[in-house]
């Protein structure tokens, strides 16, 4: 692999843009195809399909066998709420290779001391989320319990193609949330994208256990159905 190809691969990942590296097995010749340039590549159709599935693999072409290294951007988790559960989520995300970002306008909570593992934005979600660029490789998690903070985040997430949306709160809390979101113009189908109550049902009690159940649910959304509604619509 030429160093400039390796550097370009790393740069694309850093910029959260998908890319496919094509390696001709017989000759070792390689080219990097950025998502934006995909349509003009001779293997456009195959590359687009692999990218959609997010799967690297061999492919047969008229010119011989090629290996396609599919590089999707790393998963990012955006959390509203610099709370206990988030403090447990941050190191778990790091272990899993995901980028996690905390958003909470309450400056007493949103301090770097409480979150050594993750960037913290002490701002309102409606200001920060558009800047972060919530894409289809992003999971959004609402954990403040406070509609003033969670709702603007949820609204932004529902308008995005993010692959997972979860919101903390009891069934009763969620029922009220559904009423507010319906009043804000979202359909039942939109609102059904929200996992609530959040997390897999593992009987979680402590903040770390709840974080584990949330991370399990995010992993399931990522791995069990790569062609989720949001991605299929892409």
């Amino acid at each position: 692999m030429k160093l400039e190809i390796l550097a370009a691969l790393n740069a694309e990942r850093e910029a959260r843009r998908a890319a496919v590296l094509v390696t001709e097995i017989a000759t070792g010749k390689q080219r990097l195809v950025r998502e934006a340039d995909l349509a003009s590549d001779p293997l456009a159709e195959t590359l687009a399909e692999r990218l959609r599935m997010g799967k690297s693999g061999m492919a047969e072409t008229p010119a011989g066998d090629v290996f396609l290294t599919v590089q999707a951007p790393p998963v990012r988790i955006v959390v509203t709420g610099a709370v206990h559960i988030s403090q447990a989520l941050a190191p778990m995300a790091r272990l899993l290779g995901h980028d996690l970002t905390i958003v909470d306008p309450r400056t007493a909570f949103a301090t770097p001391e409480r979150f050594p593992d993750a960037p913290v934005h002490a701002e309102w979600p409606d200001d920060v989320l558009p800047k972060l660029g919530v894409d289809r490789y992003t999971a959004f998690v609402a954990l403040t319990h406070d509609p003033k903070i969670d709702d603007p985040g949820l609204i932004h997430a529902l308008r995005s193609r993010c692959f997972y949306i979860g919101a903390l709160g009891s069934r009763k809390t969620h029922a009220k949330r559904v009423e507010r979101l319906t009043a804000a113009g979202f359909t039942d189908k939109d609102i059904a994208r929200i996992h609530a109550p959040i997390g897999l049902p593992i009987g979680a009690i402590s903040p770390a256990e709840i974080a584990l159940s949330i991370m399990g649910e995010i992993t399931a959304a990522l791995r069990l159905k790569p062609a989720s509604a949001a991605q299929a619509a892409a």
Binding site: A7, N10, R13, P74, G97
Partner: peptide
């Protein structure tokens, strides 16, 4: 710490 794809390919570079 367990290495991620990010760490691995950046290390190679």
């Amino acid at each position: 710490m367990l290495a991620t794809d990010n760490d691995i390919m950046n290390r190679a570079e």
